[in-house]
């Protein structure tokens, strides 16, 4: 009896969760291939351009974040520098400042650098994720020291050990962080909305939002465009779900702020938000 109820609840919940995806497919893609073609050929949309922009931004941000944050995390975990605790504190402290609240001043900095409607403005400010550094540090603290010592005995410097021993043995963790960073970067909205003022630099989220808030939004075209924008991420999700779950779980285990469970990148978050930001925002999360 209990078990029957449980299954009924699960199935109803699953159907409800899938309805939005069903709607996208039914009202967008299933109306015919010509709609999807129109999405790409309509010159007013410059949708193909925005897909390309999003790809460039997400790839650069993911690679950049992984390199910068893993280096910093390794230095903090393994190099015996006297003031390392102070540096760590200065980095973790920025987690307390919600990234999206700093969007006005960050915009000011980026605009005075002349980076508006420029890929540098879209990509660079989001590279410095304190959360990622924290996660990498936790991970490297648990990395087997014996492996690193073997590298040292072979005459490798700390730099050499990092690139030849530590990184090749950390691919699972790197993949977990990379998937989360990529999804977060692809889905972020507020920051590109501020920075990409010229339509040639619109990311796909900004392009969709402009369609949605236009005078007479065309539903079929909108749904087809949204489905196209979602497809790469859903594929990534399906292929890399194992890493994704691991990444989310690692975030929970390491906890800079709240005991067990820390802040996560906000889905759709501002600069510095590493993911899912959230917001979330994402971020973060």
């Amino acid at each position: 009896m209990r078990s029957t109820l449980r299954w009924i609840a699960l199935i109803i919940a699953a159907v409800v969760f899938l309805v939005p995806f069903f709607v996208l497919v039914r009202d967008g893609v299933a109306t015919g291939w010509s709609t999807v073609e129109e999405v790409f050929t309509d010159s007013d949309l410059s949708f193909a351009r925005s897909l390309l922009n999003s790809t460039i931004v997400a790839v650069l941000q993911t690679v950049g974040q992984i390199v910068l944050c893993s280096l910093a995390g390794y230095g903090l975990a393994r190099i015996p520098y006297r003031h390392a605790p102070v540096v760590l504190y200065a980095i973790v402290a920025t987690l307390m400042v919600p990234t999206a609240v700093t969007f006005v001043p960050s915009f000011v900095v980026v605009s005075s650098l002349g980076w508006l409607s420029d890929f540098r403005g879209l990509v660079v400010p989001g590279l410095f994720s304190a959360l990622n550094v924290f996660l990498f540090r936790q991970y490297f603290l648990d990395f087997p020291v014996a492996l690193e010592e073997a590298g040292r005995l072979d005459g490798l410097s700390a730099w050499g050990t990092y690139w030849r021993i530590v990184i090749p043995n950390s691919t699972g963790f790197l993949a977990a962080i990379a998937v989360i960073d990529f999804i977060g970067s692809w889905n972020q909205f507020l920051w590109p909305l501020l920075i990409a003022q010229d339509s040639s630099t619109w990311t796909v989220q900004v392009a969709l939002s402009n369609l949605l808030t236009a005078q007479n939004p065309q539903p079929t075209l909108l749904f087809a465009a949204a489905a196209v924008s979602l497809l790469p991420i859903v594929l990534l999700f399906i292929i890399a779900q194992r890493y994704l779950v691991r990444g989310v779980t690692d975030m929970d285990n390491s906890a800079p702020l709240t005991g067990p469970g820390g802040p996560h990148p906000i889905p759709g978050g501002g600069p510095g938000a590493s993911l899912p930001a959230g917001g979330r925002g994402e971020g973060v999360v």
Binding site: P20, I183, F189, Q205, S209, L212, L222, P267
Partner: peptide, 25 residues
């Protein structure tokens, strides 16, 4: 399967969700 179904919206952006909620649901 169920875990994936409930986790899948994580892949979706707030913009796309807004679009579906506003124009359809």
């Amino acid at each position: 399967f169920f875990q994936s179904v409930f986790f899948l919206p994580f892949a979706c952006s707030y913009v796309v969700a807004s679009l579906v909620w506003k124009m359809s649901l």
